[in-house]
Design a protein around this nucleic acid. Structure first.
Lengths: 381, 381
DNA sequence: CTGTTAGCGCGTTCAA
DNA sequence: TTGAACGCGCTAACAG
């Protein structure tokens, strides 16, 4: 059935030159409508698909989008990828996956970057949680390869377009929820502070405490690593404290951290939420199935993926400003306005008014499930 | 730093023709060793990476590997992808992601296939859980594109190389574990029977029961959908049965199904494992963090991904037999023998001796955690 | 509006 | 052992 057709074949069949076929392929306006229809029909009949490789070669930039991901097994990634996949399916682009090796070799990372750049396969790059690799990204940008950052967890690199979740507001909401339940000794297990998101979440926690007039208690703040064992270790420290000063609630910087807390609670014979309340962050898919189901802050991961790719696509369509990657307002924001109310309004307007690289901060939402309750009575006085 | 270098540049710098550079790139033996060294050095200095797009175009087939995945959010996928990514990093290939749209359009699926084939971008295809799309795969194979199936869940397509887990043995082990704990009324929540894996797991369940002289009780067998709500619904049916005939243990065809069972148990006030034992299948990462941690059957997902890609690569290197994709024993099996004892020995020998397409069945392992216990005393007589 | 010409960067013939 | 020429399938300048 679908044997490989070339533009030449179509051109012969339609009785026109290859250039004309190429024109309709690229949606050039200057083609006779009836001719265009005829060509389109023939292409449909023979289900012709142009060779991405060849067109990329000729045009000097491919029709592929690179996605730089850390370990695929980090639970947030699949949901983000889903959003990305959803929008790429509606385009003629394909996705090329570059996974950063988790090994220690410093060499590796720049190698990946070299591969990305040098083989000139892709037209744009989406960097998810680039971490330390973010260092190399501005160079790519400068070489003319549009780059969009998705929730960078490293130092905020200079001037790259950037999609993230509103971590601060999410953390604030989580802490406030605990506060309004009556908790006063609320602990926080941070993520590694080298990540921007960790600092933002911590900030939200601090802000909420301050707004309720509760002084920060350094003994209630520990640094985890986003993973269950780290959460468990921190929780054990909390649970070993004397009952008068022990926290009645814990806000964990990630759901996986919260899983570790649940393990520790069981070990100490503490019930959740009767003895200690718990809030996570992320709302990864398994959190709703925990016993008890975890109260957490949901990141709009799929939406973030979608936005990031749409942003990148909009950058690809305005290649006239090579150095500074700015948002072409119409196509992207039109979609945004129509399809979703997730992004915070402030970010929207900031985006439009500013000539700076785009920085979108999507809203997070508190998902109240069953790991939070008022503090136990012995702690309520 | 790393500006884009072409073969011509290198050729000029080295004072040779492009053809020679091309030769050393492709590891042709007929190059003067000293010249080769010089060229290699120059390429290193300027960290030259050949254009995948161009070489693919010229050679008629790209240096890209397509991966056909269903929803990335299906929890097994990321672990599989991890294995794939690990081996692709050691090669010069890149990964192209084709995600099958979950929409209902029958058209979509063949569209994806068309895209894959027609744009002639990739050299080989890895199809993960192809499901209904498996129908189109043999056609690709016939057109000269090597295809490897990873744990197809559809009808077993004719003659494609195939990697899977030993579902039957895993299910057998799970059921036997329950049996040896003393359970006699063991229910099974199947996956959709249209999937091969569901039937295999059911078969393992049946085999174990038979070996222990327990007749199959149709009222203890329900069909789920691999997802939590399906599992919950089935479990509710079980739990609503009169106590005398109610199952004392449930073997769920997937971990997610088991999560649903845990929810139902809570709803019915049944404790796990005291009142009812539970075994899942898959060992997805969150299962170890459930309360109580879930006893389940582990699929060697990462290993499966790794094997699948290695198999595909070995097929790529023997393009001389276009129609029949057979295993080139040396490179692949050598790795297998060295790096892992996961694959079952029988499959190994079968592979070597047979001229049929490769079918590798990797061993599963029972992971005993905390959701299984002897049946409650009132059911023990 | 359309056809013609020239490459994009590389592999692969051929001769030399 | 090496070099020159051609072509992969397509886009991008030009002309007409």
């Amino acid at each position: 059935m679908s044997t490989r057709m070339t533009i030449s074949d179509i051109a012969r069949l339609a009785g026109v030159s290859k250039a004309t076929v190429s024109r309709v392929l690229n949606h050039k306006p200057d083609v006779d409508p009836v001719t265009r229809e005829r060509i389109l029909r023939i292409m449909e009949e023979h289900n012709f698909v142009p060779s991405v490789a060849a067109s990329g070669l000729a045009a000097g930039k491919g029709h592929l989008i690179g996605v730089l991901v850390p370990a695929l097994t980090w639970p947030l990634i699949p949901d983000i990828m889903r959003g990305i996949a959803e929008v790429v399916e509606e385009t003629s682009y394909e996705l090329v996956l570059y996974s950063i090796k988790t090994s220690n070799h410093e060499r590796d990372r720049s190698d990946v970057i070299n591969r990305i750049l040098a083989n000139r396969l892709i037209a744009g790059l989406l960097a998810i949680f680039p971490g330390q690799s973010a260092r190399y990204l501005p160079a790519l940008q400068r070489q003319g390869l549009p780059v969009v950052l998705l929730d960078d967890q490293g130092l905020p690199p200079e001037q790259l377009p950037w999609i993230t979740a509103d971590n601060r507001a999410g953390a604030y909401a989580a802490t406030r929820h605990l506060l309004e339940l009556g908790h006063r000794r609320i602990a926080h297990i941070q993520g590694p502070l080298k990540y921007q998101v960790s600092r933002e979440r911590f900030q939200g926690y601090c802000d909420a405490l301050q707004d309720y007039g509760i002084p920060l208690d350094p003994s209630l703040i520990l640094q985890g690593d986003f993973m269950p064992p780290g959460g468990r270790a921190c929780a054990c420290q909390f649970f070993a404290m004397p009952e008068r000063s022990r926290p009645t609630a814990i806000f964990a910087a990630s759901d996986l951290t919260a899983y570790g807390v649940m393990g520790a609670a069981e070990e100490f014979g503490l019930r959740i939420p009767e003895d200690v309340s718990l809030v996570g962050f992320d709302d990864i898919s398994s959190s709703g199935h925990m016993r008890p189901p975890l109260t957490t802050v949901r990141q709009p991961l799929t939406e973030m993926g979608r936005c990031a790719l749409e942003l990148l696509l909009s950058l690809l369509e305005t290649p006239d400003r090579p150095g500074a990657a700015r948002l072409c307002p119409s196509p992207l924001l039109a979609r945004f306005a129509g399809s979703s109310q997730l992004q915070s309004q402030t970010a929207m307007t900031a985006t439009i008014e500013s000539a700076e690289p785009v920085r979108l901060r999507l809203a997070t939402t508190l998902v109240v499930r069953a790991t939070t309750a008022p503090p136990p009575c012995y702690a309520r006085l």
